[in-house]
Simulated scan of single mutants.
Amino acid sequence: MTSFEILLSLLAAILAAAISALLIQATRPLLLRVALAKPNARSSHRTPTPQGAGIAVVMATLLAGGIVIVLAGSADLTVPLTVFAAGLFIAVVGFADDVRPLPVVPRLLLQAAAVAAVVFAAPGELRIVPACPVLLERALLLIAGLWFVNLVNFMDGLDLMTAAEAVPVAVAVALLGSLGHIPAATTIVAAALCGALLGFVPFNRPVAKIFLGDVGSLPIGLLLGWCLLQLALHQQFAAALLLPLYYLADATVTLLRRMARREAFWAAHRSHFYQRATDNGFSVWRVVGSVFALNVVLALLAFASVVLNSAFADIALLLAGALAVALLLRRFARPRAAKPA
């Protein structure tokens, strides 16, 4: 990436942050009337709080990212346009679910359509495992993408949690893009998403004044998933796995535990490790701070994977990342020791 393209990425982040903050400020009074999330037994908040700030975050990301991609003079806008269209589509699905919960099967089918558009928009010559038939690889990526979109939604259950996860991932992707490991359009979108989330942070810090809602968490998951897919397709699979490893572990282990207990795993619950942490005496700031710090460590491991460019190093770094994640999950799962009187 040239210095001009790096400046464009910075511009995308700054522009998205400004648009996001302004749109949240402008739409919050309306959302207070039409999209109020009332606390229930599974909630982490105690007072009715408006949701739907994701509208601002997603629009800021797409507007800032689109403007800067055009300024960058990209010759082929087919893939970014497809991703943007899929992002808008899944945001509409999320908004409909925020207003009136959709049945599980139609909701998953609509989400799958958006994920499929992103997965099959990738050039056919870009492969993760060249020996695998292309249709089989794309089908597996579709399943993985659908899970990733939903797990980002599942993990959006605590003030600042999505920002604590997505900001380090987006920054890492943008920096790796600045080193030429992924296309410029992906780099710009990652920078714009980072900026949009930073514009959202002042409104979502504990105690939150507004939530993302499904209208935000679903497209954020889709855009992050696309960025990680670009890393994997450009032969940086270990980095693509390391960056979201905390989210993958928390959501997947929780799902498997609920399935093993024959619980209705598709229903809302409070059994994610980060939720159990707050029940075990950890403050919201302590939880999101720990997740953010872990994600910085995972980002550093991802960079080491790219720099070392060795299969042996990738295995060692993935094991190190898995150990770091396991230690935090174990910490969250145990009641916090009471201070001596």
Rank of each mutant, 00 (worst) to 15 (best):
C132H: 01
I6H: 13
A114V: 02
V93H: 03
L109M: 08
A37N: 00
I128E: 02
F211V: 01
A163I: 01
L10Y: 15
T278D: 04
L140Q: 02
W285Y: 15
G199S: 14
D250W: 02
A64S: 14
R334E: 07
A18E: 13
A144C: 12
V288W: 08
L140A: 06
L140D: 04
L71E: 10
F203N: 10
A86S: 03
G87A: 01
G94D: 13
L193I: 00
A37C: 01
A251L: 03
I69T: 12
I55Q: 05
G145T: 02
L135W: 15
D279E: 13
N280L: 09
L23D: 12
V201M: 12
R33W: 12
E165A: 13
V57Q: 03
D214M: 00
L222K: 15
D159T: 08
A53Y: 04
F4E: 06
R336Q: 07
A53Q: 11
S283C: 13
F120Y: 13
L242Q: 07
S43F: 06
A114N: 06
P48I: 10
L176E: 04
Y246L: 11
V306K: 05
W226T: 03
V129W: 05
I69N: 03
L36D: 10
L23F: 08
L323T: 08
R46G: 09
G180W: 07
A35N: 09
L256E: 06
S290I: 06
A184C: 14
A232M: 00
